[in-house]
Design a protein around this nucleic acid. Structure first.
Lengths: 205, 205
DNA sequence: TTGGAAATTAAACACTGTTCAGTTAAATTT
DNA sequence: AAATTTAACTGAACAGTGTTTAATTTCCAA
């Protein structure tokens, strides 16, 4: 089986090469402007080969999308040590913002870009799971907050969505350069300051 | 001058024709998938002619972008009658959400799409003005709220950004189809419910 | 009617994602 | 060792994109 094994390994290696090239090109130029030919050029193969490893450009998108979620989840894992759910919630926001602004192109892929994202609707995607996913962690943290008496009178799903949306709104306005105008003087800190204002509000709930 | 006048009129008419075709195609297929040739086909001209009326595709984008802002401003104008600033703020949110969800492609253009939007950074764009723009209205309404004692301890710019981001976050997640997963059972009402939760919070501030 | 300016076109350029008939090389069978 | 099958890979092609430009048509003024 050594030959078959090697073949499998080689195939896996080329898959990874394609993804690595796609990822780096994507970080340089963005998803839209990264072409199949760009990727092929970088790994010294012809454009056609990529279609033997991925159905189309969107499948590459999907692979990077999944990568992004598992990275975000990894960053969230360290928060397991924070016992106080309210403190944990705040820390999650901070980490989320950090992740989004430091990996804005991947965040773009995950939450902003429009794409034939059938798989995004796939609820079985692990990133959404209660146990393993980043969003499950958010929901269950907020649940714990409610168990402690916070967010009284609120529906779990609604408040979860609202909190997510607030943080997403801030970072996505920043990423898509819509913050420059409302506060032309202090663009850099606007997300941080907006988040601080949000925390001040959450503290009262 | 009648001939020169007619020429000017004709030129203006073709400009409007191009914009009308672009707008309708754009609403059908989205900005990215609307091509210069599509627009030219629809008005029975050759593709080249468009470049005599607009510098490039982005200038068409710009024109529609500006249109969108003046429409939003128009919808906001009716709120001048609402005396209570807190009530006015809530009504603004409702109208903003309505506008975004009913004109999601234009909203896309205004706040989500990535584009060489040099003009978006142009702070002189009337849509941002204190007096005439939609954002000025938001800011000054929140200022009035603060004058009445709301949002105590908050910085005007920060709370304005945060409130805007919250509403933007909700509609943009909806528009880009990221809501299906967190609440697969109730997608339709999630923005409304999230907004209601937000209002409940604002009421306490 | 003619000359020139303005409006419009057609063709080209360099790209894009994707497909597919071939070539090439390697593995299996005879 | 030779023949055959299988898989990997290529390169050219297709239909599309935004944009430029040389040529053409249209139209008005002298």
């Amino acid at each position: 089986m050594t030959i078959a094994d090697r073949k499998v390994r080689e195939k896996e290696e080329l898959t990874q090469q394609i993804l690595a090239a796609a990822r780096s090109l994507f970080l340089e130029k963005g998803f839209e402007k990264t072409s199949i030919r760009n990727i092929a050029d970088r790994i010294d193969y012809s454009p056609g080969i990529i279609y033997h490893y991925f159905k189309d450009k969107n499948e590459i998108f999907h692979a990077l999308h999944t990568e992004g979620f598992s990275e975000l989840r990894k960053k969230m894992e360290v928060l397991a040590v924070v016992e106080n759910p309210m403190e944990r919630l705040k820390a999650m926001g901070k980490i989320y913002i950090q992740f989004a602004l430091k990996n804005s192109d991947i965040y773009d892929l995950m939450f902003i870009i429009e794409a034939p994202i059938d798989h995004v609707k796939d609820s079985s995607d692990p990133c959404w799971n209660e146990g393993s996913g980043a969003f499950g962690a958010l929901r269950s943290t907020i649940k714990s907050c409610m168990d402690q008496g916070h967010f009284e009178g609120h529906h779990l799903e609604h408040i979860t969505f609202m909190i997510w949306a607030t943080v997403h709104g801030m970072v996505s306005l920043q990423i898509r350069k819509r913050t420059d105008i409302i506060t032309p003087e202090e663009v850099d800190g606007i997300v941080d300051n907006g988040f601080k204002a949000f925390l001040k509000i959450l503290d009262k709930l």
